[in-house]
Nucleic acid binder design. Structure first.
Lengths: 200, 200
DNA sequence: GTTCTAAGAGACGGCGCGTCTCTAACAGCG
DNA sequence: CGCTGTTAGAGACGCGCCGTCTCTTAGAAC
């Protein structure tokens, strides 16, 4: 009983699970090292040995419980459908967080948190190139700001309304948001700049 | 000497000035009620009597030191110039904050902080209507998401890169950002949806 | 078996929280 | 002008968590 000490991966996983549980239970603002240590039945020192502060701990916990955002680029055969798929995936993930988590991380570890939004634009670029290959677009030579537009808008909306997300009844609300981003903004813009028959 | 007690407006102003000074000196994360009380040479109770927590205090301090964002809608005679003026104003203001201020407020008082971005879309709508009156646009019947697009993008960029703003050498960087928002995204989109000769 | 790393547990001083208490300055009222 | 009620100014208080440090001992390495 007393003679069972966890080590390495096992211990690490226990701590990260405990940290995630604490975040989900109390929210990030009330995430305390002492609380995590108690829940994982270990000492604070063991945690401090691995992560310098609660922000890094939280980031590690996120990466540990939720895997990578996109495993592969969707190929539905339609530009709009491809984009919708990937945005939906991002929105779904956004709803797994407690609202205050993002805010706290941005406040306490801006540099580490900045790396979060770097995946999606690359994926979107690929989706656009696939659309070119199918003939849906004339070219994919778009300004970076345009390419990252849908991800930026979605993330911005998530930041602004995070405290309302995650509640019930927002399923349809989010679907509407995605539709607006694509149909009101992104697709009209992309079709203007690179629709079939538009030279680069 | 000892016989001089401040009251009402005077006292309030002193406290808010002190709070702002503390924010600018230590940053929002290290804004403490005790620090503000000490700097304003008053008691904590005096502060708690007026503001329930440091988030509300900070918001009051912001409103006290920086006035309203836009006093009047610009009328330069050109849509692009009007928009640029108002975005520039917003960006300038953004640089007055310490980076972490926004994050902290979003984390601790999301509801109060949400009210922040409600002014600009109204202004932009007016600018668009002026452009219609001059014949630059066919109509101003655009989806709300489109109207708030430039403000959203600018604010998002501010959130993401707040920790880099406020440093030196970003003057040109910001000008470039504004140009991209307008020339790569907003103006092409608006001209597509409501350029001269486009029916509603 | 011996050695050495690190887990588990807790003590420690420090800081800021939010509440409470006390006093005396001063505004309002007669 | 004096009385009264409010509240500024100042500090003490218990609490929770910080980050560091100490100590014992499990168990990996050799």
């Amino acid at each position: 009983m007393a003679g069972t000490r966890r080590r390495g991966e096992e211990l690490e996983a226990t701590i990260l699970d405990a940290a995630w549980a604490e975040i989900m239970k109390n929210g990030y603002p009330r995430l305390t090292m002492e609380g995590v240590a108690a829940r994982a039945r270990t000492g604070k020192q063991v945690i401090y040995r691995r992560w310098p502060d609660r922000a890094q701990l939280a980031i590690a916990a996120i990466r540990h419980t939720l895997g990578p955002l996109v495993s592969e680029v969707p190929q539905t055969g339609s530009l709009r459908e491809d984009l919708l798929t990937v945005l939906r995936r991002m929105a779904d993930r956004g709803r797994q967080y407690r609202p205050d988590l993002f805010y706290g991380l941005l406040a306490e570890a801006p540099d580490s948190a900045t790396g979060f939004g770097t995946v999606l634009p690359g994926v979107i670029r690929e989706i656009l190139e696939n659309a070119v290959a199918r003939g849906e677009l004339a070219h994919a030579d778009l300004p970076p700001r345009v390419v990252s537009l849908p991800a930026d808008l979605l993330r911005y909306e998530g930041l602004r309304n995070a405290h309302r997300w995650g509640q019930e009844a927002t399923e349809a609300e989010i679907e509407q948001l995605l539709t607006e981003i694509l149909d009101d903004v992104f697709l009209p813009l992309v079709l203007t700049l690179a629709g079939p028959g538009v030279s680069p």
